[in-house]
Amino acid sequence: MIKKLLSKEKGYAQVSVNKKFNTKNVDEKFWIKCESCNSNIFIKEVEENMSLCPKCNHHFKLSARKRVNLLIDEKTFEELDKDLVSMNILKFPEYEEKLERYTGKSKEKEAVITGTGKLNGIDVILCVMNSEFMMGSMGYIVGEKTTRAIENGIENKLPVIIVCASGGARMQEGIISLMQMAKTSQALNKLSENGLPYISILTDPTTGGITASFAMLGDIIMAEPNALIGFAGPRVIKQTIKQDLPEGFQKSEFLLEHGFLDLIVSRKNMKNKIHQILKMHGY
Rank of each mutant, 00 (worst) to 15 (best):
L5A: 09
K8P: 13
E9D: 10
E9W: 14
Q14C: 15
Q14D: 14
K19E: 11
N22M: 12
V26L: 07
D27V: 05
F30I: 14
F30R: 14
W31A: 04
I32C: 00
I32R: 00
C34I: 08
N38Y: 07
N40M: 11
I41H: 03
I41S: 02
I43N: 06
K44S: 11
N49T: 08
S51Y: 11
S51N: 13
C56E: 04
F60K: 01
R65Y: 08
V68D: 00
I72C: 03
T76F: 08
E79I: 09
L80I: 10
D81V: 12
K82G: 08
D83Q: 14
L84T: 13
L84G: 12
M87C: 15
E94Y: 15
Y95I: 12
E97Q: 04
E100G: 15
R101H: 06
T103R: 03
G104V: 09
K105G: 10
S106H: 01
A111S: 14
G115L: 02
K118I: 09
V124P: 02
M129N: 02
N130W: 03
N130K: 01
N130G: 03
F133T: 02
S137N: 13
M138H: 09
I141V: 12
I141Q: 02
V142C: 04
G143I: 04
E144C: 07
T146P: 06
N152Y: 10
I154Q: 00
N156W: 13
P159K: 01
P159R: 00
V160M: 02
V160F: 01
I161N: 02
I162H: 01
V163P: 00
G168F: 01
M171Q: 09
E173A: 07
I175C: 11
S177C: 11
S177Q: 07
L178T: 11
Q180G: 09
Q180T: 14
K183Y: 14
T184L: 08
N189V: 15
L191V: 10
L191W: 06
S192A: 13
E193V: 15
N194W: 12
S200E: 05
L202V: 09
P205N: 09
T206W: 04
G208P: 07
G209H: 01
A215G: 06
D219I: 06
I220H: 12
F231T: 11
F231C: 11
G233I: 02
G233R: 00
G233V: 04
I237E: 05
I237S: 05
Q243H: 13
D244I: 10
P246H: 06
G248K: 05
F249T: 01
Q250D: 10
K251T: 06
S252E: 02
F254W: 06
L256W: 08
E257W: 05
G259I: 08
L263M: 05
K268Y: 05
N269K: 07
N272V: 11
I277P: 03
I277T: 05
L278G: 03
L278K: 00
M280E: 14
M280F: 12
G282K: 09
